[in-house]
Amino acid sequence: MPFLKNSKGKESVEIFYQDYGKGKPVILIHGWPLSHQSWEGQIFTLVEEGFRVIAYDRRGFGKSSQPWGDYDYTTLAGDLNELILHLDLKDVTLVGFSMGGGEVVRYMTEFGTDRISKAALISSIIPIVAQKDDNPDGVPQKALDEILGALKTDRVGFLKDFHKNFYNFKEGAAGVTEANLDFDFSVASHASPNATIKSAEAWAGTDFRPELKNVTVPTLIVHGDDDNIVPYKTAGEQAASGIADNTYHLIKGAPHALNLTHGKELNKLLLDFLKK
């Protein structure tokens, strides 16, 4: 199994990644609290369409190391940079889902765009999650505190139901099955408890609005108008307003995890963007 060893920082970590196909490289960055496996439907399609697809597990999740500390976005972007250098990738498209959008933007802030040609933000937390006086459409701090409190007192119990909101799950409805929920629960529950908490603090508490100016490559933004996790008005809509060169698609009726529920539509948007 391929691992990248990153010895920079306080603790040495091993980052697990998969590298499939040939062609222009596309790096898929997963959301919280899952792993690279959440990109299953996109990996197959992109590889079959002639792209080199690299998908990795964020530190603390999946098969990657589970260090105690350092889950801030600068550290996470550092792992991404080490992966790009390790594989000597150029002309890269970075694709971040949900929390993964933070690595996309922070990477460009810290390391520039010399190796990056495009970016995509899918149901992304960019630029800000929390409700503030100047961000009235964000998630109220009380709700964010309740999530963090539940993770600290009953992490597994919280995760058991959390992904229902990922999909706007309704029993018996088409598109998402109990098996999907069981799979997500298995992946999320085996992640590092501390990583789950600390990375939640990162996505809930980081304001990327000052960094949007650093996203200077063509960027695809895709969000669902029925996203119960990251409302599109605080995320996709503001990202489209702050990133100069962007294409914004708001998918009607799509929940947060539209990469599964609206996979065909998302894949078409990604392919059209990558081939442009």
Rank of each mutant, 00 (worst) to 15 (best):
5 K>S: 14
10 K>E: 15
11 E>M: 04
16 F>N: 04
19 D>V: 15
24 K>C: 09
25 P>E: 08
28 L>V: 12
28 L>P: 07
37 Q>V: 14
38 S>I: 14
41 G>E: 10
42 Q>D: 02
43 I>F: 07
44 F>W: 03
46 L>H: 03
47 V>D: 05
48 E>H: 07
51 F>M: 04
52 R>Q: 06
56 Y>W: 13
59 R>I: 13
60 G>F: 05
60 G>V: 08
62 G>F: 04
66 Q>L: 10
66 Q>V: 11
69 G>I: 08
72 D>C: 02
75 T>K: 08
76 L>M: 15
84 I>L: 07
87 L>Y: 12
93 T>Y: 01
96 G>L: 14
96 G>C: 14
97 F>H: 15
98 S>H: 10
101 G>T: 07
107 Y>R: 04
110 E>D: 15
110 E>Q: 14
111 F>W: 11
114 D>P: 04
115 R>I: 05
119 A>M: 05
120 A>L: 05
121 L>F: 11
124 S>Y: 01
124 S>W: 01
134 D>L: 05
136 P>N: 00
148 L>F: 00
150 A>Q: 06
151 L>T: 06
155 R>K: 00
157 G>R: 01
157 G>N: 06
158 F>Q: 10
160 K>E: 10
162 F>R: 12
162 F>P: 04
164 K>D: 01
167 Y>P: 08
171 E>G: 03
179 A>H: 07
182 D>M: 05
191 A>T: 07
192 S>M: 12
193 P>E: 02
196 T>D: 06
197 I>C: 08
198 K>L: 14
199 S>T: 15
201 E>T: 08
207 D>P: 05
209 R>Y: 09
210 P>N: 01
211 E>Y: 05
211 E>K: 01
213 K>D: 07
217 V>A: 13
218 P>V: 12
220 L>D: 11
221 I>S: 10
223 H>D: 03
226 D>Q: 10
226 D>C: 01
227 D>R: 00
228 N>E: 03
229 I>D: 02
232 Y>V: 04
234 T>Q: 03
236 G>D: 09
239 A>T: 05
239 A>N: 02
243 I>Y: 03
244 A>C: 02
246 N>T: 15
247 T>E: 08
250 L>D: 06
252 K>C: 02
252 K>M: 01
253 G>M: 03
258 L>W: 00
262 H>Q: 06
262 H>V: 06
265 E>C: 10
266 L>S: 02
267 N>V: 12
268 K>F: 04
268 K>A: 10
268 K>D: 07
269 L>V: 07
269 L>A: 06
270 L>A: 00
270 L>P: 00
